[in-house]
Design a binder for these strands. Structure first.
Lengths: 195, 195
DNA sequence: AAATAACAATAACAAATGTTAACATTTCAA
DNA sequence: TTGAAATGTTAACATTTGTTATTGTTATTT
């Protein structure tokens, strides 16, 4: 269904001009994939060969630490990308998992297809640069938030970062994203400390 | 002195081919600047219009939090860049300071000059994309370290991330980079807790 | 050289956060 | 539909980390 492509076309055109000829090229580079809730599409140790663009649904990027605890690194909501960036860009085994938290529809771009886009769109490289810069700022702000905000402040701003996330995913995933224990998050929410 | 440019030429050529004609163009885009120890070259509230490439010396990127505490966000050592990325890319007032921790020599590239480089080098946009991707991975790894490593582990790996940093800067700057108090860092180093 | 400021270590105490366990509720699967 | 698994809250206790203050040392400035 062509409709899946409308959102990524809009996103790309936010960065560069794309004419109809180029757009036909683009469409050929994407594959539609449906991911069932709880399905894992990338595991630790694999080379991540794809970028996922979330059309509908929700992906969770996480890794497993030394104590076998899952740490949620990022949520990828509608109209955003998901990949193991280090693994994808360097073509080396990664240490992230990517899992669907809802039934999810994504557009898949492989590393090879992406290089074709960079090379064959008039402003392909510029598109890549601008998207990389935007995600760079996302990470920049995330780090800054870790330095300046309390866990509760970060909890309260999560809905702004990830639309409706607090109503969409189990709370312990939120806690792991905040890098605090589920028990502690529950306490913070209800202000049980203030006695 | 032309020698200041050798390191950035090597860095750029690590990403793309640059012929002699292009290199003359590049050189014209850089300005050499000497920064005295403790001098602040960017302050909160200013629009950051430059990227600094550190030829020699050491810069500290930090911000001031709600409690007026300085938080060290990043150290820029030789052969790396320093800027307030959000402010620079978006051309909006930023909230970072950039300060020299040693007498430092940098090459300055303004936003305008950088756009000229992107537009006029054969692979200018690609250069921008690849550098953005590399710094993206730097931030990616920094966030991952915050999730997975204890403050002491992060302290012990700082010399790998920033050459000789532990011998170059006062310890309380290291503590603020690790997002812990100077007192706590001192305790961790000497293992005073284990009693 | 003397005065001052910056820095690091330590101690004592306070606050934040983690861990384990118990329990109740909801979701999911056979 | 029923039992099992997942989830969220709360309590008790342990650990980590922060705060304040004191002290001695090292740098910096005059």
């Amino acid at each position: 269904m062509g409709n899946n492509f409308e959102s990524i076309r809009a996103l790309m055109q936010h960065y560069i001009e794309i004419d109809d000829v180029e757009w036909e090229l683009c469409k050929a580079m994407f594959t539609v994939k449906h991911i069932k809730k709880k399905e894992i599409v990338l595991s630790e140790g694999e080379i991540c060969r794809d970028i996922y663009f979330v059309v509908k649904g929700l992906l969770r990027i996480y890794f497993v630490d030394q104590n076998d605890d899952e740490k949620t690194f990022h949520f990828s909501v509608e109209n955003t990308f998901a990949t193991d960036y280090r693994s994808f860009l360097r073509e080396i085994p990664g240490d992230f998992y990517i899992q669907a938290l809802e039934d999810t529809t994504v557009l898949v771009v492989t590393f090879e297809m992406l290089q074709l886009l960079y090379a064959n769109l008039r402003n392909g490289e510029k598109l890549g640069r601008l998207i990389a810069e935007d995600y760079f700022i996302v990470f920049n702000d995330k780090i800054k938030g870790i330095y300046t905000q309390t866990p509760l402040q970060r909890y309260n701003s999560m809905n702004a970062t990830f639309p409706r996330i607090l109503m969409r995913v189990p709370q312990h995933y939120i806690a792991s994203y905040l890098n605090i224990s589920p028990v502690h998050l529950s306490r913070l929410k209800y202000g049980i400390d203030e006695l």
